Amino acid sequence: MKATYHQYMLEFKRPSGTSRGVMTEKETWFIVLEEEGKKGIGECGILRGLSADDRADYEEKLQWTCENIHLGEKALWETLLEFPSIQFGIEMAFLSLKSQNPFLLFPSDFTNTVKSIVINGLVWMGEASFMKQQIEEKLADGFNCIKLKIGAIDFEKELELLHFIRTHFSAGQIEIRVDANGAFALNEALDKLIQLNQFQLHSIEQPIKKGNIEAMKALCEATPFPIALDEELIGVFSLEEKERLLQKIRPQYIILKPSFVGGFRGTQEWITLAEKYNIGWWITSALESNIGLNAIAQWTFLQDSKMPQGLGTGALYTNNIDCPLEVSQGQLWYNKAVKWNSIF
Rank of each mutant, 00 (worst) to 15 (best):
residue 3 A to E: 01
residue 10 L to N: 02
residue 12 F to A: 06
residue 21 G to T: 14
residue 24 T to L: 04
residue 25 E to H: 14
residue 26 K to L: 07
residue 33 L to F: 08
residue 38 K to Q: 13
residue 42 G to N: 08
residue 43 E to M: 10
residue 45 G to M: 00
residue 46 I to D: 01
residue 52 A to V: 01
residue 53 D to N: 09
residue 55 R to W: 04
residue 57 D to F: 05
residue 60 E to N: 13
residue 66 C to I: 08
residue 72 G to R: 11
residue 81 L to K: 14
residue 82 E to T: 14
residue 84 P to T: 07
residue 85 S to R: 03
residue 88 F to H: 12
residue 89 G to P: 09
residue 90 I to Q: 00
residue 92 M to I: 12
residue 104 L to I: 09
residue 105 L to E: 01
residue 115 K to T: 15
residue 117 I to F: 05
residue 120 N to G: 14
residue 123 V to L: 05
residue 128 A to P: 13
residue 130 F to E: 15
residue 130 F to Y: 14
residue 137 E to A: 11
residue 138 K to C: 08
residue 142 G to N: 14
residue 147 K to R: 13
residue 149 K to S: 03
residue 155 F to I: 11
residue 163 H to K: 15
residue 171 A to D: 09
residue 175 E to M: 11
residue 177 R to Y: 01
residue 177 R to S: 04
residue 177 R to F: 04
residue 181 N to M: 09
residue 181 N to Y: 07
residue 182 G to A: 12
residue 183 A to W: 01
residue 183 A to I: 10
residue 194 I to L: 10
residue 196 L to H: 02
residue 199 F to K: 00
residue 200 Q to A: 13
residue 201 L to D: 08
residue 213 I to G: 00
residue 218 A to K: 15
residue 227 I to V: 15
residue 227 I to W: 00
residue 236 V to I: 15
residue 240 E to D: 12
residue 249 I to E: 04
residue 250 R to I: 09
residue 250 R to C: 14
residue 250 R to Q: 15
residue 253 Y to S: 05
residue 261 V to Y: 00
residue 265 R to G: 09
residue 269 E to I: 11
residue 269 E to Y: 05
residue 270 W to P: 05
residue 279 I to P: 10
residue 282 W to I: 11
residue 298 Q to F: 09
residue 298 Q to S: 10
residue 309 Q to L: 10
residue 313 T to D: 04
residue 316 L to I: 12
residue 320 N to E: 14
residue 321 I to C: 03
residue 323 C to Y: 00
residue 325 L to R: 02
residue 327 V to F: 06
residue 328 S to N: 11
residue 335 N to A: 13
residue 336 K to Q: 14
residue 337 A to V: 11
residue 340 W to Q: 06
residue 340 W to D: 03
residue 342 S to T: 14
residue 343 I to T: 11
residue 344 F to G: 05
